[in-house]
Every structure is written in structure tokens, then in C-alpha cells.
Design a protein around this nucleic acid. Structure first.
Length: 245
DNA sequence: ACGTATGTTATCCT
DNA sequence: TAGGATAACATACG
């Protein structure tokens, strides 16, 4: 569930319910990080997403839901596993499982910079390129997972955009030609939107070129190694992807 | 059936 | 002591 496009799907599914500015009638779930009573009777101003964060915005505060690795949700349905947070409205209910729930005080637009969210209208490619160049000596595979630079990019997107831009995961920004760096940044947004489309069609895994693949589209063997400081699994082709280090 | 994983943070080591 | 490694969280899938 967790990468940025999946959170956009959740947000859009909820918006499609046409809840308007719904009033919270009941709150359920085991979460202890928020005061559930505080929500009752409050009207929701908006549902937003920022990277992997799902945001339920009220007038003076926001509930942030992070699904981590295992999180799930159900709309107008429930399941037997322990419910983390459930919100009931006049005719709809939202149920969140295995997620981190936090309450943020104040105006959400002042808390988040939407320029770094690859799914946002405000996404700023130039800013991302500039930030990458401020980390000349870091591995690109780590920088792609840095939510301060690429909010919403996760391990699948990381692997796929590195392949698309033909960059080896252990390359460093100081050695990557600017043109390639720009191409990589552009792919972060472009692939994320293709991810969104394919995920909706339930065909995402069919389109993976390296992630969980044995061979790349050019017929070369795909390497699988934990790389960088993040030490996450990386799938890459040593023939197609050039190491700039 | 069991190993692995779309994520993040805390803690344990060296 | 900085930084790397590991654990913890708790679930679904192949």
C-alpha cells in the first residue's frame, strides 16, 4: 500500500464518496496517540496527501496517517484484524489498520512543503535537482528514498526510475551528468503517475522492468543487492545502468 | 509453509 | 561518538 501513488488513490476514493464537509459521528480503534473524543462532532475540512502521508484536515488540527509497510484501509467495510482508527460519518465509514496515527496542530499548509511531493501540482523538479547537487557525495539510491527530497518515492519507484534513467544505484550526484540527473528527477514524477494509473488497473507488477525481475527488458541479468546507507533491496542492470562514481 | 517485503524509527553495537 | 547494523512494529503474498 505505502508509496505516494497509493495514498493518492486512497484520497481520491474518499473524495469520490462526495462526503462534502462530513461531521465525525463516531471514532473507534486502538490508537492512543490521539484523543478520539476530540474528533467527535468535528467537521472535516479536506482530505489531502503528502508523499506517503494521508492527511485528514480539520479546522485547527490534522490527523496524519502513515501506513508504514503493512498498513491497509477499508472504505465502508471492515475486517477482523485490530482496527487502528475508524471514523463513522452519516452514511460512510473509514477504517484504518496497522498504521501510525498522529495529530498535528496548526495549519497543514504551513507544516508541509508540497514542492517536494512528486504527486503534487506544486512538485518542483528544479528544486529536486538543486537539492541532489547539495548532496554530491551521497548515493543516489539513498537520496531517492529521502522523503525531504522525493516525498512519496518508495523502493519500487526508486528501482524503476534508476533503470529508466540508466543510472547505477551507487552513483553519486557529483559524478552524474546534469542531463541525467534532470532525467532521473523527471522520471520520479512521470513514473509515479504511471504507477498510479497501473495500480488503479491492477497491472502495476506487469510493468516492472527491474523491480523483482530476473532480466531487464534488454535481456540482461538483473542484480539484486542491498545498497547504500538505507540498505534497501535494489534491483538493477549492470549493463544498462552506468555507474557514475 | 516460510521467507520476504511498497517504511520508519529506536536501540544496539563497534 | 558517529555511524552502521539490527530490531521492532504486525500483515499479506507467492
Amino acid at each position: 500500500m505505502p508509496e505516494g501513488p497509493s495514498i493518492v488513490i486512497l484520497r481520491d476514493q474518499i473524495k469520490a464518496l462526495n462526503l462534502g464537509k462530513p461531521e465525525v459521528l463516531e471514532v473507534a480503534g486502538y490508537v492512543k496517540t490521539i484523543d478520539k473524543e476530540q474528533l467527535i462532532g468535528e467537521k472535516i475540512k479536506d482530505f489531502k496527501s503528502w508523499g506517503k502521508h494521508f492527511l485528514i484536515c480539520f479546522n485547527d488540527f490534522t490527523i496524519r496517517i502513515h501506513f508504514m509497510l503493512f498498513g491497509t484501509y477499508l472504505i465502508n467495510a471492515y475486517k477482523q484484524t485490530p482496527l487502528a482508527l475508524g471514523l463513522t460519518f452519516k452514511k460512510d465509514e473509514l477504517n484504518f489498520y496497522t498504521c501510525k496515527v498522529e495529530l498535528l496542530e496548526g495549519n497543514v499548509d504551513e507544516l508541509y512543503d508540497w514542492r517536494v511531493d512528486v504527486m503534487a501540482d506544486e512538485w518542483d523538479e528544479k528544486l529536486a535537482v538543486k537539492t541532489l547537487r547539495e548532496h554530491p557525495d551521497s548515493y543516489i539510491c539513498d537520496l531517492l528514498l529521502d522523503q525531504h527530497i522525493f516525498a512519496g518515492v518508495g523502493n519500487i519507484i526508486k528501482n524503476e526510475v534508476l533503470y529508466r534513467a540508466r543510472i547505477h544505484p551507487l552513483s553519486k550526484p557529483e559524478k552524474i551528468p546534469l542531463k541525467k540527473l534532470r532525467e532521473l528527477v523527471r522520471q520520479c514524477q512521470q513514473y509515479s503517475f504511471e504507477f498510479l494509473k497501473w495500480k488503479k488497473e491492477n497491472t502495476l507488477s506487469k510493468h516492472w522492468e527491474v523491480y523483482k525481475q530476473k532480466e531487464c527488458p534488454n535481456g540482461h541479468k538483473v542484480e539484486k543487492k542491498k545498497t547504500g546507507k538505507s540498505n534497501r533491496q535494489t534491483y538493477y542492470c549492470t549493463e544498462c545502468q552506468i555507474k557514475c562514481a
